[in-house]
Design a protein around this nucleic acid. Structure first.
Lengths: 251, 251
DNA sequence: GCCCGGGCTTTGGTCTGACCAAACAATTTA
DNA sequence: TAAATTGTTTGGTCAGACCAAAGCCCGGGC
């Protein structure tokens, strides 16, 4: 197995906050800490682990960024560091930056959206409750009105999110939400640059309604196909056309 | 639009480190900071932003956790805080914890894997280079030997990762890697509990070879179907059977 | 002139100890 | 009883110090 001698990164000796992080993760992985549970106060962790408060706080910041933790001052039941479950926030933030760093070309994101949302739509068609359908219908109805483009964009997002959540798969829903949020700004920019906005809006409305109908009719195949072509077609015909002359958006 | 009065979380007044984070993100989103660029030294950021070093460091920790930053001590060209691009590390870590928190039931993860990897396989079949195929074949060949289960599991991961990367879509590849890594421990546990390990290994080998052949033959449909049924079947027949009597794994 | 070694500088990593402010609880007061 | 006050807990912030790793630079020796 004599691999090339390169790529022998020196073992980065663990920093203190990483050790703290490891201890807390242990507790989570072992099941000793679940959603809703509270961590000991920072000052107490300092004693327990024998490190400085700064180290503890850096570890907590990381967990918070991952959507695993939520910190509040004060004394009440909602105070302190509480284990939470907000994966989509963390995911969204992470994807946003990496997309800005051009690690993820728009084409890749479109592909990912198409894949994830196609699957979500199929799941949704199979198991959406009346309640789920209502949640999908609300933004749909609002988009039928004349709206500012920003609001239209938000409703568009809400509609797709509702589908993902109706699928009943939190992981896929969260990834869908994160990816959709990550392109939110890009889409909004595209919306604002369109010359005949109303025509585009009309097309989107029609496609959304068709998707909704397919899901309501429990036609998984059709729902999946419609969503996929909706996403691909939209980006191909509209976004790329609008953005083709630019590199970076406005600063 | 008179929504219910609840859910009016008080705006959490931004904490200092969040402001620092925002400033750095601005630079990234505006394109002033790209991969490879260096941030000013911590002490300099302290002056520039007028905050304490602790606040700066907490912000940097967050970026580091997201795989956007890499910090090293010293003076050389690789020292300081450098913008990096390691999305899969951050994603993996994030998913790992949230899976442990049971936010993501195993069934959801399986569904996500099936969806993502099916799509990756189709992409790979369409564009895999000879080099990509070689990277897929290496772990495949190693799995044909008699290996410790842990190593077998690693090769299994490598094989699936190679497919994802051959697809040429970094976002989907990173999500695939993260999800696969997140279940690494679960799978390993299952492997160790199997009674007739060799039979299972044989089955996995055969399925892997079939997938490889389909991709090499550029048969996207077949590759996608095989991967999907490989993942679903494996979990249905093996993992769930092994884990059915348990709640939490060993601590 | 070239190489090598020791010291200097830069930079992140860590700790200490202090004070602030929010949120709530307990107590006193009208 | 109800309102106002005080106190306690807890995270948020800061200042300042010291450590250790990694290069860089300069001088001495070959």
């Amino acid at each position: 197995m004599a691999e090339s001698t390169a790529a022998w990164e020196p073992v980065p000796r663990s920093r203190t906050f990483e050790l703290v992080l490891a201890r807390i993760e242990e507790q989570i992985l072992a099941g000793n800490l679940g959603v809703g549970d509270r961590l000991p106060p920072e000052r107490e962790l300092v004693e327990l682990l024998g490190v400085s408060r700064a180290a503890v706080r850096e570890a907590l910041r990381v967990l918070e960024a991952q959507g695993v933790l939520r910190s509040r001052v004060g004394t009440g039941p909602a105070s302190g560091s509480v284990i939470a479950a907000m994966p989509s926030e963390g995911l969204t933030q992470l994807l946003r930056l990496h997309m800005a760093l051009a690690n993820f070309p728009l084409a890749d994101v479109v592909e990912a959206r198409a894949t994830l949302e196609r699957s979500s739509a199929r799941l949704a068609a199979g198991r959406a409750t009346a309640d789920d359908l209502a949640r999908m219908h609300t933004p749909l109805a609002r988009m039928d009105e004349v709206l500012p483009r920003e609001e239209f964009n938000d409703c568009d997002t809400d509609f797709h999110v509702a589908i993902a959540e109706a699928g009943g798969n939190r992981l896929m829903a969260d990834m869908t939400i994160a990816v959709r949020n990550a392109v939110r700004h890009t889409l909004l920019t595209a919306f604002h640059k369109l010359s005949d906005w109303e025509a585009v809006a009309a097309r989107l409305r029609a496609e959304h309604h068709a998707i909704y109908d397919a899901i309501a009719a429990r036609d998984a195949e059709r729902a999946g196909d419609l969503v996929e072509s909706h996403i691909r077609g939209f980006h191909r015909d509209i976004v790329s056309a609008v953005l083709e002359n630019e590199e970076a958006g406005e600063p």
